[in-house]
Simulated assay, not measured.
Amino acid sequence: MTSESVQPRSGPSRRAVVAAAGAAGLTVALTACGSDDKASGSSTEQGSGGSASSPEAGAGGAALAKTADIPEGSGKIFKDEKVVVSQPAAGQYKAFSTICTHRDCPMVDLKDDIISCTCHGSEFSVLDGSVKKGPAVEPLAAKQVTVNGDSITLA
Rank of each mutant, 00 (worst) to 15 (best):
C100P: 05
D69I: 06
G11P: 08
S3C: 08
A19S: 07
T101H: 10
M107K: 14
S5C: 06
G60P: 03
A95V: 05
C105G: 06
A68V: 05
S13M: 13
V28F: 14
S43G: 01
G58R: 12
A90M: 01
P135S: 08
L110P: 02
E138K: 10
V145L: 10
A20T: 10
V85C: 07
S125V: 14
C119L: 13
T118E: 12
V147L: 06
D113M: 03
T153C: 02
S5E: 12
T153I: 14
G49S: 08
G60A: 14
G73R: 07
S3V: 11
G91K: 04
H120A: 09
T31N: 07
C33H: 08
P8N: 05
V108R: 05
D112Q: 12
D150H: 00
P88C: 10
I99V: 15
V18I: 14
Q92S: 14
G50K: 04
S53P: 00
S13G: 12
G58S: 13
S13Q: 10
G91S: 11
L140F: 02
G60H: 13
D113V: 00
A16N: 04
D109S: 12
A39C: 02
K143V: 02
V28T: 15
V28Y: 10
N148P: 00
A65H: 02
A59D: 08
S40E: 06
V18H: 10
V147G: 00
T101M: 15
K38S: 10
K133P: 10
T146P: 00
G47T: 04
G47P: 06
G149P: 09
C117N: 07
E72V: 15
A89F: 03
C105F: 05
V84A: 08
A62D: 13
A62Q: 12
S97N: 05
S13T: 15
F78H: 06
F124E: 00
G75L: 01
G11I: 11
Q7H: 10
E123S: 15
K82S: 08
A141C: 09
A141W: 00
P106F: 03
L26P: 02
Q87G: 01
K94D: 01
L154Q: 00
A141G: 12
S5A: 12
G121C: 04
P139H: 09
G91V: 07
I70D: 00
S3I: 11
S43K: 09
A62V: 09
S51P: 11
R15P: 02
R15A: 13
G91D: 08
L154P: 03
V84I: 10
S48D: 14
L26T: 15
C100I: 05
K76A: 03
C100D: 00
G91L: 07
G49V: 02
S5G: 10
D104Y: 13
A65G: 09
I114A: 05
S13W: 13
D69Q: 13
D36N: 12
D109W: 03
A39M: 08
